[in-house]
Design a protein around this nucleic acid. Structure first.
Lengths: 382, 382
DNA sequence: CCAGCAAATGCAATCGATTGCGCTATTATA
DNA sequence: TATAATAGCGCAATCGATTGCATTTGCTGG
């Protein structure tokens, strides 16, 4: 009886000759965190190689042996040490994610999508935040490389205008996928939504509601999504015969205060405006606050539409129209793209760009025509 | 020249006799992901043991050698393989975090606190979400154990009323720290805020504002924080000579819809109420919506206070008073507790319970007396 | 001038799982 | 029946870093 030998031997050594009789399982429990394939091997009476192959369902292992190994593994509560496996075949089964901040419904939902897709395939996820800080983003890339992740998924920080830190990832041959906040300056796969179409749709909706002096809140033009949203906004104006006025495009940090400032700027100017299409929900809330403070009635005098469908857009008074980006779907597609990359043959492929559709959610803030006005509670955020 | 030998040797083998002359650095770059201490050893002309010791600042290595090793490491862009190190000394330098959902300012801020504290000590963090689902929580514990994390930090899911999955963590000797949503049924270290004091303070504030029929929104009583908040609420009433009425305590899921339903329930009852202290910001927003729908004026007729200082509490009309839990500080303290556990001697210690103070933020929703009313924009969420 | 000690490194085993190669039986083929 | 093929499994090296013990070198004091 192999296990008995082992049991007596080890335990004898450990306790200096003074030992009591435990049950085997009890003994193995006492081992704590130390159950390896060798323990299984001993139990079954084969070598560790065979156990390893059995556990990995290797074709050259007989069904009978496999069964015994599996049973023994379960019996002694074996957990594979994925660190050892990782060292051996150079794959950590870890995926690194970098987002500007996790504290946004949009990003945390994407992460959720990635996580569920990856977990189902026995991959774990490491989440890092760049806080929109370039330096932190560079450090984070380094940290993930340090952790030996098998792939990295990134949404760029707002202040990232140089991409050398990604070059090194690419050069090391580590799969890299961008989502949402991407750039065209790198030859990488990416998953984005059709920002252009969404912006076009939103602007068009405002026009249909009778608004015709529509302002646009945007952020740094280095970021693709803002370019696209601006493009959609512009095109919608043109297609409806509305004059595009560059003064109506206001750039800010897209945060609450940025939105307030931009709204104040618009109010201070002499040219009139009767609607705002903002590329960010946060900025539009800031604008809402500023406008209300100045007794501007929403949506009667000014119509508002945000972007991202953050949960709080439902909480405001009035509820804000916005664009839902189907974040979970973005996450799933990003993860799927990663798995395509590691599973496919290694022939160099052209860049893949998945473009998903977004979804305009019309609430009170942009509904001036009564019969189109929708219920505030049309979607449930929880 | 050691490196030259190596270079010729390896490269010769790899390219079957057909090789070109690269620079050394260039060659090493081409190695991609494969630079180990052996490469450094070869470069410097010592063994891997020496390199390892030099890199770890071992006292028995001469300063001269250390310097050479460090320089060579930098020169060939060496990155330690922490997987190999992890395998060797059984420490992954990974910390697992489980939160109900990352999509809450409160939790993501805690995570941020933990992350920064841990990263500064060369530990990485793995974040998992339980989505308040018991089954998922159990699976997640398993996944983290699988990933060989060195410790686990948890905030319990709402539906977790059994704790066997944590027993196994404790038994394996893996440091376990609870934060915020904890239980007394386990003998574990924990970091919490003084929910009792915060609730007392909030209720007391309402009373000072002249509200005297104060309702309380709460959730499942298995969770310590809700017990404590209820206790604070009750005590404040008693201390002010206000009769405690169990009918005024309404239990729900603490989500938006739960808050709406609870508010409707209060409105439907014959007994009057003129204030609500909610143990959740989400529920109080639901209540706010429901009350406004019924033309109840806030704060004139009914005063409201939430809990957690979620960013959106500033966006509502009127802005909501709430309790700030200093989430980042909770995170830092939780991480600090973890490091105390792994660094201290291994003698069994009594359970540690860190209790931090919370901070009442008074906004319009509970400010009936003009001269106490504060500015809506008193704090900046970004 | 040599034992004795310490400083500085090297040797080799180890962590746990994986895998190419090789060795037996057993079965199939000629 | 003899040989080839194949299934089933063991041996030992390997992944990269770490570490107890052994070894070498240099120096000091008797």
């Amino acid at each position: 009886m192999h296990l008995l030998d082992y049991f007596l031997n080890i335990h004898f050594k450990q306790s200096q000759g003074c030992f009591a009789i435990f049950g085997f399982l009890d003994f193995l429990m006492k081992k704590k965190e130390k159950i390896t394939i060798h323990d299984i091997a001993m139990e079954v009476g084969v070598t560790a190689s065979t156990v390893s192959r059995a556990l990995n369902n290797h074709p050259r292992i007989s069904p009978a042996t496999k069964k015994m190994v599996l049973e023994a593994a379960r019996a002694i509560n074996y957990k594979p040490n994925r660190i050892a496996a990782a060292l051996r075949h150079g794959k950590s089964k870890l995926i690194g994610i970098i987002v500007p901040t996790i504290n946004r419904n949009f990003f945390s939902s994407i992460v959720r999508g990635i996580e569920e897709y990856a977990n189902a395939r026995d991959y774990k996820v490491m989440i890092s935040q760049s806080y929109d800080d370039y330096k932190k983003e560079v450090e984070t890339i380094d940290a993930l490389l340090d952790a030996r992740v098998d792939g990295i998924m990134v949404s760029l920080g707002k202040n990232t205008h140089s991409f050398a830190h990604f070059e090194s990832v690419i050069q090391k041959g580590i799969p890299l996928v961008f989502f949402d906040r991407t750039t065209d300056e790198l030859e990488v796969n990416q998953v984005i939504i059709d920002d252009y179409a969404a912006a076009y749709q939103a602007t068009n909706h405002l026009i249909r509601q009778g608004y015709c002096h529509i302002a646009h809140f945007t952020s740094h033009m280095k970021i693709k999504i803002y370019q696209e949203r601006l493009r959609g906004y512009t095109q919608a104006l043109l297609d409806n015969g509305i004059h595009f006025d560059a003064k109506m495009v206001v750039e800010s940090n897209m945060q609450l205060d940025g939105g307030r400032n931009s709204a104040r700027f618009l109010l201070d100017q002499s040219f009139g405006f009767d609607a705002i299409f903002s590329a960010s929900d946060y900025a539009i809330v800031g604008a809402l606050q500023e406008l209300k403070k100045n007794q501007v009635r929403i949506p009667q005098e000014v119509g508002l539409i945000g972007f991202s469908n953050e949960p709080f857009t439902e909480f405001t008074e009035p509820a804000l129209s916005t664009v839902d980006q189907k974040a979970i779907s973005i996450g799933e597609n990003t993860a799927a793209l990663f798995f395509e990359m590691i599973n496919g043959d290694s022939r160099p492929k052209p860049r893949i760009k998945k473009v998903l559709d977004a979804n305009l959610i019309i609430r009170t803030s942009s509904s001036r025509i009564p019969n189109i006005q929708l219920n505030t509670n049309s979607t449930n955020p929880e």
